[in-house]
C-alpha cells in the first residue's frame, strides 16, 4: 500500500481546454512503470504536473502524493517543490543540453546537486561522490569538462548522474533517448536500469516507443487524447491488448510480423509490405472527440462510444473501451 507515487484524478487544462483528464497512476517502490503515447496524448504534461513544472497558463487539478513528502504536490509553492525536486524526485528530459548549465563544469554541477539538498556533508565529499557517479555512468575523467565538449549521449549520461545524485525515491524519464542514436540509446537505457536498480528507486518512463517501454518497464499505461485508455503488466498489454487503440498501435508498429515469412525475399520482388494502420491523424491537443477519445479513428466505434467508456478492471490493470478486443474469451 505504500506506493512511491500516487496520482489521483489528475486533470490538466489550458483556458478551459482539458489536455489531460482523470489520470490515475501509481508507482510502487522499485517498480518500473511506462507511460506511452503519441503527440497530444498528455504523457509529458502528466510528468510535468508531477514535477510541478507546468507552464504558467497551464493548470493542474487532482492529487499527486509522493512517499516521504508530507504535502500535496499539486499547488505546492515553488519553495516546497524545490526541496522535493532533485531529492525525492529526479528527472531526465529529452534534451540534455538544456538540462545542464553551459557555463559550469560537469563535476561541479553534479556536486552542487548534492550540496543543495545537503546529502553530502562537505564540498570535498560531494566532489568525491560526483566523481564516483560520473564513473558509474561510464564517464571517467569528465569532472572538469564543460557540457558543450560532450556528445549528446554523454550529456544525457551526465544528466542521469545528476538525477541519481541524491538517491531519489522516484526517477522520471521523459523520452530520454529519443534524440539519441540506437547504439547510444542502448547504453543510456542500460545505465538507467542499473542506476534505479542499485538505488531501489522507482522509475516512471515516458516514451512513444513501444519496444523501449517493453524492454525497460514492468507495467505500462497507454495514453491517448489526454486519458489513460489501458494499463497493465507489459507482457499482458502488449500480447493481449484490450483497448482498440493499443491494439492498433501495436499492429502499426510491428514491422517484424508485417514482413510475412522470411524477409529475405530477394531482389526486385515487391513483397506486400503493408502495415496495418490506424486511419486518420492524431488530432491536435484539445480537439479529441467527447466520449471515447479514440472513436473518430476506431473501426469498432458505435453510438455507445459517444459516452465516456467506464474503466474495466483493477486500478493497476484494465482498460476503458466499450468494444474491447478479445472480448469473447474474457
Amino acid at each position: 500500500m505504500s506506493d512511491v507515487l500516487t496520482v489521483q484524478g489528475l486533470t490538466v487544462s489550458v483556458r478551459d481546454v482539458a489536455l489531460v483528464s482523470d489520470v490515475e497512476l501509481t508507482v510502487g517502490p522499485g517498480e518500473r512503470v511506462g507511460l506511452i503515447g503519441e503527440s497530444g496524448s498528455g504523457k509529458s504534461l502528466t510528468a510535468l504536473s508531477v514535477l510541478g513544472l507546468l507552464p504558467e497558463d497551464v493548470l493542474a487539478a487532482g492529487s499527486v502524493r509522493l512517499s516521504g513528502v508530507d504535502h500535496e504536490l499539486i499547488g505546492a509553492d515553488e519553495r516546497r517543490m524545490s526541496r522535493v525536486r532533485g531529492r525525492h524526485l529526479a528527472m531526465v528530459f529529452q534534451e540534455p543540453m538544456t538540462a545542464l548549465n553551459p557555463t559550469m563544469r560537469v563535476g561541479d554541477q553534479v556536486a552542487e546537486a548534492m550540496l543543495i539538498h545537503r546529502t553530502r556533508s562537505s564540498r570535498r565529499a560531494a566532489r568525491i561522490a560526483a566523481a564516483e557517479l560520473l564513473e558509474l555512468v561510464q564517464l571517467p575523467g569528465v569532472m572538469r569538462t564543460y557540457p558543450h565538449q560532450l556528445s549528446g549521449g554523454q550529456r544525457q549520461r551526465v544528466v542521469l548522474a545528476l538525477a541519481l545524485a541524491n538517491d531519489p525515491a522516484l526517477l522520471i524519464c521523459d523520452e530520454p533517448t529519443t534524440a539519441l542514436d540506437v547504439t547510444v540509446q542502448a547504453m543510456v537505457l542500460d545505465l538507467i536500469m542499473r542506476g534505479v536498480a542499485a538505488r531501489e528507486s522507482a522509475l516512471l518512463f515516458i516514451t512513444h516507443d513501444l519496444a523501449v517501454v517493453a524492454t525497460v518497464c514492468q507495467r505500462v499505461l497507454v495514453m491517448y487524447g489526454g486519458r489513460v485508455v489501458e494499463s497493465g503488466p507489459v507482457t499482458e498489454v502488449f500480447t493481449r491488448p484490450r483497448h482498440r487503440y493499443t491494439e492498433g498501435l501495436i499492429a502499426a508498429s510491428d514491422l517484424e510480423s508485417a514482413d510475412s515469412g522470411p524477409a529475405d525475399v530477394g531482389l526486385a520482388t515487391s513483397a506486400p509490405r503493408r502495415l496495418p494502420t490506424i486511419p486518420g491523424n492524431v488530432p491536435p491537443a484539445g480537439q479529441f472527440p467527447d466520449g471515447c477519445v479514440f472513436r473518430n479513428r476506431c473501426a469498432h466505434a458505435t453510438e455507445t462510444c459517444a459516452t465516456l467508456p467506464p474503466w474495466t478492471g483493477t486500478p493497476t490493470q484494465g482498460f476503458a473501451c466499450h468494444h474491447p478486443a478479445g472480448a469473447s474469451d474474457a
Binding site: Q185, L189, D190, A211, A214, T215, V216, V234, D254, E256
Partner: peptide, 17 residues
Amino acid sequence: AIPTLARALTGTTTTDL
C-alpha cells in the same frame, strides 16, 4: 541495439541491447 517488441516480450534486457 535495436529494441523490438517481440524480443522485449521474450525477455531481452537493456544489457542484451
